[in-house]
Nucleic acid binder design. Structure first.
Lengths: 226, 226
DNA sequence: GTCTATAGTCCGATAGAC
DNA sequence: GTCTATCGGACTATAGAC
């Protein structure tokens, strides 16, 4: 879950096509990416309510008209931003994270790593949640929210059981991943709102115990199917 | 968790004081509340990005100037909206919900009731989450997000153990409530994004098992302290 | 591909009649 | 307490020079 820097480029450049004249020169692609990253910065800074094209252009170091040269509309830019976030997460998975060998221990390590990450990237997490909500209510963009979640589920799921595990195990990995993600999203909101570190730490411990138990239960069910 | 209708009036009228000339006549108070409810409607309809004072005024059936007569600024109105949501939840607790007698069964019933509620109030939940995020990043309004969460925690906590339980039990009730809320918030986001009802149902069942286990563990710890 | 300049719209907020 | 009318500014988007 560490900052995967710019490994996301490749993926987010290919993106929805909305990104304008296919005639994409080297420099053009860089500018396009600068605008996306500028939008992310501006979003983290001031929230979606204050996220205007002017602010984005300034944050990216380009003129307003340049922004509109690369994106037909503000909406298509926001979609590209969400895609960039997904690509970044995808890249983070690819560069892999070394983890304990027992699945239950991996689950625990993953939750702890996520919790540390959440604590030091408050603005980023809020921004991402805002964008997800934006996608959820923007007609025709709901699929983006689903893609974002599936990327996270793949990410967590693959870290619970390696890619070469059998189908049953991968299915279990995804179920646990979904549940881990639920807890993490819930803790993000609650920890930022309550600002009670000791309570949040208790919540993380409870979540870890619950996830270890869930994984154990699913594995036991597999060995002794109904 | 059923719609508590208008029981929230009293509370939200008293509110932050920002609500303008204390000289509040009967009719004036009604107008003020109509504006707040209009804002909630408009928010559920189009999201916080499209939530303009003009739209709110139209949705409330008042003129733009009237809105500004009751609220000094758009921000103070949004704060009043969040307070209204909190008051509504508070009222919902007061009118109480009949539940099973065993605490563990109450926890399960509560989660199931919340899940049914979430499924039929998508727009409302998204709106509320958007407002919470708004409060979290609006300088000086972070306390509102905390108040909102504490209202929910009280609500759930009181339903796990009655008010007349001893202090230990009430503390345990609140811990379980926090954890239940984390799961519910996480499921809200994930279920809307993934639109996979069978997965969400599995998640709810897993959450119920986890919460029953958590409550049991906390009670066992209390009887046999470290 | 990036710029300046500006069109055209919509915003939050206020003045002042009733 | 509610209205009409309007201000000044900020917004998204485009036209057209370079």
């Amino acid at each position: 879950m560490s900052e995967p820097a710019d490994a996301a480029n490749e993926t987010s450049l290919a993106s929805t096509g909305r990104g304008r004249p296919a005639g994409a020169t080297r420099k053009g692609l860089e500018t396009r990416l600068r605008i996306i990253r500028g939008a992310r910065e501006a979003l983290e800074e001031g929230g979606i309510e204050a996220l205007t094209t002017r602010r984005i252009a300034a944050s990216a170091g380009v003129k307003l008209a340049t922004l509109h040269y690369y994106f037909d509309s503000k909406e298509s830019l926001l979609i590209a931003v969400l895609e960039d976030l997904i690509a970044e997460m995808d890249a983070a998975y690819r560069q892999d994270v070394s983890l304990p060998s027992a699945p239950e221990d991996r689950v625990e390590a993953l939750i702890r790593a996520s919790w540390r990450y959440i604590q030091r990237t408050r603005g980023k997490q809020i921004a991402q949640t805002e964008l997800t909500l934006y996608a959820l209510r923007t007609k025709g963009s709901e699929w983006l929210a689903a893609r974002q979640y599936n990327a996270y589920i793949d990410f967590y799921g693959h870290l619970v059981f390696e890619d070469d595990a059998d189908e049953d195990l991968r299915r279990i990995g995804r179920a646990v991943a979904r549940q881990m993600l639920i807890g993490i999203d819930g803790i993000i909101l609650q920890s930022y709102a309550l600002q009670d570190l000791s309570a949040s730490n208790d919540d993380i411990e409870a979540h870890i115990i619950a996830m270890r138990g869930y994984l154990r239960r699913l594995l036991a069910e597999r060995d002794r199917p109904r």
